[in-house]
Nucleic acid binder design. Structure first.
Length: 568
RNA sequence: CGGGGUGUAGCGCAGCCUGGUAGCGCAACUGCUUUGGGAGCAGUGGGUCGGGGGUUCGAAUCCCUCCUCCCCGACCA
C-alpha cells in the first residue's frame, strides 16, 4: 500500500474529550472516528487491525473444531420473553418496534437465538458436542459509554456457544476453550492472565476471565506470585494468617472531638489504622439496618457483602439520617460495641485484639476493645477486598495485585437457557434430555484498545507484530525529487509485496520529521529509510519501533535482514 | 437518573464578566523556496458562535428553554 492511496488521517493534537491513552491514540492515529455517544466508525487503518484480531480468533476457533455461523443482530422479543430476560435485562437492552408494532431488541448477546437454533436443528445426542461461534456486532445501551471502543455501546464480539449431553463433555470443551483462548492471546502478543471469575467455593472452574494487563485497567486481578491462583479482586477470597492474641489493655473511652475518619482517629490516638475498626451500616431486608465491621485499613467488597442473608437487594449503604435516628450517633463515631442491630465482622477485624472503634456516641471512641470480653464473639464473614500481601486462598504464598482489562470470558452456563427454551435431544435410551451449555466470548474491538493501552509511548502506538496494520514502512526521503531514492524505494516495495509482506510506502511529499512522526504514531513495527546520502554509500537505514537508535544496512543485506526481523 | 461542567472553522482554544456584527494556533488549498525529526514566505477558502424563544436600536456575549458531549455518582464512617 502507498500512503498516497490510503486514507491516513492523523491528528497532531489530542482530542479534548478522550480520556485514556488508547482512546486518544486511536483518534490521533486515525483508527476510529466517533459518530455519536458510544458509536464509532472504524477507519481503513483501524479496520486492518480489527481484521487481524478477528483472523487470529477465527483461525484458532476453527482449529478447536468450533463452527462459524452468523446470527441476526436484531432479535424478536418472544425469545427473550421465553428466557425471562425481556423483563430482567433492564434499560441496557435496546428495544425497538417494527412497522407492525412487533417488538425486537438489538442483541447484546445471543444465548436465546443460538438455543432456539439448536432446539430446531439438533435432535440426537449423536450430534453432540457442538460448538458454534460468530463474530458480530452487539449493542448494549450503556448508562455511560466512555473510553472510546473500550466501553462503547456498539461493539464487535466473538461469541461461541457449546452444547453437550453431559457435564463431562462440557468440561472437556471448556478446557479446550481455555487452551484455545490462551493460544489466541499468545498470538496477539499481549501480556495477559486468565483469572478465575468464580470464588471457587462452588467447586470446579465454572468461569474464567482473560485479562490484558495494563496499569490503567478497570479490574484488579489478584494472583499468587508463587502458585497458580489468580482471581478477579471482586471475587478473590480474603484470608488472614493472623490469630487473635489475648486482651492486653483495659477498655477505655476516649474523647475524640471532631475526629471522624479512620485517618483522623488513628492519628489523633496515635494508633495504626490497621489497629482500628470501621463500622459500616447498610440496608437490610424490610427496611432494617445491618452493621458490617472491617479493619480500618481495609475496603468493603460490596459483591461479597451482598451475599449475606438478610441484605436488602440491591445492596446499598444506609442513609446517614436514618442511622442517626436509629443509632443515635453520626456515622463517624459508630462502633460494634453495644449495637443492637445484626453485626457481621470481616475475618481480619475478628482477629484483632485491643482495637479502636467508635463509641456510638458523638466525639468519643473506645480503645482496648476485645471481642468476647467487651462485646459478643463476632459473626465472622469475608467481606473485604484482598490487598497486596494477603495470603493466597489456595495456600501458595502471598497475593499480588495488578490491573487488567477484561477481554475474554469463558463460562459454563449449564442448563439455564436450554431448560428455559426446552432445548433437548434424545439420549442413547431414546429419552429426552436437556442439553447443557457453555459460552465463550472475546471482545474483538476491545482487544484493539487493550493492546494500545498496554503498548504505547510518547510517540504513539507500539503494535505487537501480529496486530500491526502494516508490518513494515518504507520512508523515502525526497521521493519526489530524487530519482535514485524513488527507484530504490519502489524496487524494495515491489520486492516486499512479492514476498507477501504487508508493506506501506510513504510516498507523500513530506519532510522526514513529519513522516517519521506519523509512522511512529500509527505504530508500524519496522521502518526502512532510503535517502540519497545513504544510497551513495550503498546503504539504507533500519529502525524498529522500539529501538533507541537506527542502524545502517548495506543494501545487499537488506532483504535477508528484513526477512529476519519480521520472523523475529 | 442526580450533581458539576461544556458547546465558537476539521482539531486545540481565545472572545462572553463590561452587548456594537468573530479571532488565534494547527490542519486544508495555491504558488515559490526548502528537504534527515512535525519547514519558511506570500496568498486563499472555511463559522446558522449547539437549537429555539426572549430582552435590546443591536446578542457569541444578558434571560428562558431544549439538546449535545465530558466528568463525578458504588470505595464515607
Amino acid at each position: 500500500m502507498k500512503t498516497s492511496r490510503f486514507h491516513l488521517s492523523t491528528l497532531k493534537e489530542t482530542p479534548a474529550d478522550a480520556e485514556i491513552v488508547s482512546h486518544q491514540l486511536m483518534l490521533r492515529a486515525g483508527l476510529i472516528r466517533r459518530l455519536a455517544s458510544g458509536l464509532y466508525t472504524w477507519l481503513p487503518l483501524g479496520l486492518r487491525v480489527l481484521r487481524r484480531v478477528e483472523t487470529i480468533v477465527r483461525e484458532e476457533m476453527d482449529n478447536a473444531g468450533a463452527l462459524e455461523l452468523l446470527m441476526p443482530a436484531v432479535q424478536p422479543a418472544e425469545l427473550w420473553q421465553e428466557s425471562g430476560r425481556w423483563e430482567q435485562y433492564g434499560p441496557e437492552l435496546l428495544r425497538l418496534k417494527d412497522r407492525h408494532q412487533r417488538e425486537y431488541c438489538i442483541g447484546p448477546t445471543h444465548e436465546e437465538v443460538i438455543t432456539d437454533l439448536f432446539r430446531r436443528e439438533v435432535k440426537s445426542y449423536k450430534q453432540l458436542p457442538i460448538n458454534l461461534y460468530q463474530i458480530q456486532t452487539k449493542f448494549r445501551d450503556e448508562i455511560r459509554p466512555r473510553f472510546g471502543v473500550m466501553r462503547s455501546r456498539e461493539f464487535i464480539m466473538k461469541d461461541a456457544y457449546s452444547f453437550h449431553s453431559d457435564q463431562a463433555s462440557l468440561q472437556q470443551t471448556y478446557q479446550l476453550m481455555f487452551e484455545t483462548y490462551s493460544r489466541i492471546f499468545d498470538r496477539f502478543g499481549l501480556k495477559y492472565r486468565p483469572v478465575s471469575a468464580d470464588s471457587g467455593s462452588i467447586g470446579g472452574n465454572a468461569s474464567h476471565e482473560f485479562h490484558v494487563l495494563a496499569d490503567s485497567g478497570e479490574d484488579g486481578i489478584a494472583f499468587s506470585a508463587q502458585g497458580e491462583y489468580a482471581a478477579n479482586v471482586e471475587l478473590a477470597e480474603a484470608k488472614t494468617d493472623q490469630t487473635r492474641s489475648a486482651p492486653g489493655q483495659a477498655l477505655n473511652t476516649m474523647d475524640t472531638p471532631d475526629q471522624h475518619s479512620i485517618e483522623q482517629v488513628s492519628e489523633f490516638l496515635s494508633v495504626a489504622p490497621s489497629q482500628t475498626v470501621k463500622t459500616l451500616i447498610v440496608k437490610g431486608e424490610n427496611d432494617t439496618l445491618i452493621a458490617l465491621v472491617l479493619r480500618g485499613d481495609h475496603e468493603l467488597n460490596a459483591i461479597k457483602a451482598a451475599k449475606i442473608t438478610g441484605m436488602a437487594s440491591p445492596f446499598e449503604m444506609a442513609d446517614a439520617e436514618k442511622i442517626k435516628q436509629q443509632l443515635n450517633c453520626d456515622i463517624g463515631s459508630l462502633g460494634p460495641v453495644g449495637l443492637t442491630i445484626p453485626l457481621f465482622v470481616d475475618r481480619s477485624a475478628a482477629v484483632l485484639s485491643d482495637f479502636v472503634c467508635g463509641a456510638n456516641q458523638n466525639g468519643k471512641h473506645l480503645t482496648g476493645v476485645n471481642w468476647g470480653r467487651d462485646l459478643a464473639e463476632p459473626e465472622v464473614v469475608d467481606i473485604r477486598n484482598v490487598v497486596d500481601g494477603d495470603p493466597s486462598p489456595d495456600g501458595s504464598g502471598t497475593l499480588q495485585i495488578v490491573r487488567g482489562i477484561e477481554v475474554g470470558h469463558i463460562f459454563q452456563l449449564g442448563e439455564k437457557y436450554s431448560a428455559a427454551l426446552n432445548a433437548s435431544v434424545l439420549d442413547e435410551n431414546g429419552k429426552s434430555i436437556i442439553a447443557t451449555m457453555g459460552c465463550y466470548g472475546i471482545g474483538i474491538s476491545r482487544v484493539v484498545a487493550a493492546a494500545i493501552e498496554q503498548n504505547n509511548d510518547d510517540a504513539g502506538i507500539i503494535w505487537p507484530a501480529s496486530l500491526a496494520p502494516f508490518q513494515l514502512v518504507i520512508c523515502p526521503i525526497n521521493y519526489h525529487k530524487s530519482e535514485p531514492v524513488q527507484q530504490a524505494a519502489n524496487d524494495f516495495y515491489l520486492q516486499c509485496q512479492q514476498q507477501g509482506i504487508d508493506v506501506l510506502l510513504d510516498d507523500r511529499p513530506l519532510r522526514p520529521g513529519a513522516m517519521f512522526s506519523d509512522m511512529e504514531l500509527i505504530g508500524i513495527p519496522h521502518r526502512i529509510v532510503f535517502s540519497e546520502r545513504g544510497l551513495k554509500a550503498g546503504q539504507c537505514e533500519y529502525k524498529g519501533r522500539c529501538d533507541e537508535q537506527s542502524q545502517d544496512l548495506d543494501l545487499a543485506q537488506l532483504p535477508a535482514f528484513i526477512q529476519q526481523q519480521l520472523q523475529g
